[in-house]
Amino acid sequence: MKVARAGWWFVAPALMVLAVFFFIPVLAAFAMSLTDFDLYALADYDNLRFVGFHNYVTLLTQPLFWKALGNTFYFVILGVPLSLGASLGAALLVNSKLARFKNVYRTIYFAPVVTTMVAVAVVWRYIFHTRYGFLNYVLGWFGIDPIDWMGDPHWSMPAIVILAIWKNFGYNMIILLAALQSIPEDLYEAARIDGASGWQLFRHVTLPGLAPVLLLVSILTMTGYFQLFAEPYVMTEGGPLQSTLSVLYFMYEEGFKWWSLGRASAVAFLLFVLMFAITLLQLRLARRQVNA
């Protein structure tokens, strides 16, 4: 078959690239996590030794790894609901029939999404500045004392969450906006005739209509937030007192500061397994809710 042969030729370049630079490395990551791969092994593979699950044991008994894991969970648990709330609020406002200049607002709300993370982290580090930062200045209007955002371990992670919400809410807003527009107007009409209030309309028409898309964006946002790296790298270097050390930052330091590449692979693999498990859990919970 000519077409079939052409098909193979057409997919071959992309598949080769993906196989060599993605699929094989993913499999190799697991293999590598079972070795003591380090700088010496990088120079000469003869120095490589198989160590079984030693890297995993070391990690799971290392307080710093648990700290990084805890920080990452904190970021995800605080950041994902707040981000989704902001996205939903923005989508409802932009979609409102009463709103004017919708396209202008949509563009402004979306702009942070396309900005460079490193650049806006630098900007926000300045906004969070204890003495000269704009945020503390605004808080001062309301009689709130200056907060040491980047220096107080209690506030460093919330600061990063604020940045993450600002940077990301426009993305989900666009997706939710499209979903809102696909809810049939008839449903609202029918509910209104039955005497439903604004809140009841939202609760019983809008939310059920958005449910599948909300599940999708919550999973996408969650997996994105588990990969926290550039924000702490630029704003806090993981500090103060390791309060913003994320799992990926930990992996980066293990791998490319201490060159324990075997252990870094184990970190990457654990993160992946964790993300995968939580995604499955979310899907299952969602399914149960639909059935109930």
Binding site: F21, I24, P25, L42, Q227, L261, S265, F276
Partner: peptide, 16 residues
């Protein structure tokens, strides 16, 4: 494979 985050491949990729 879309569910696999790119960072999983990163360390072997560096060696490669």
């Amino acid at each position: 494979a879309l569910v696999i985050p790119g960072q999983v491949a990163m360390i072997p990729l560096f060696a490669l």
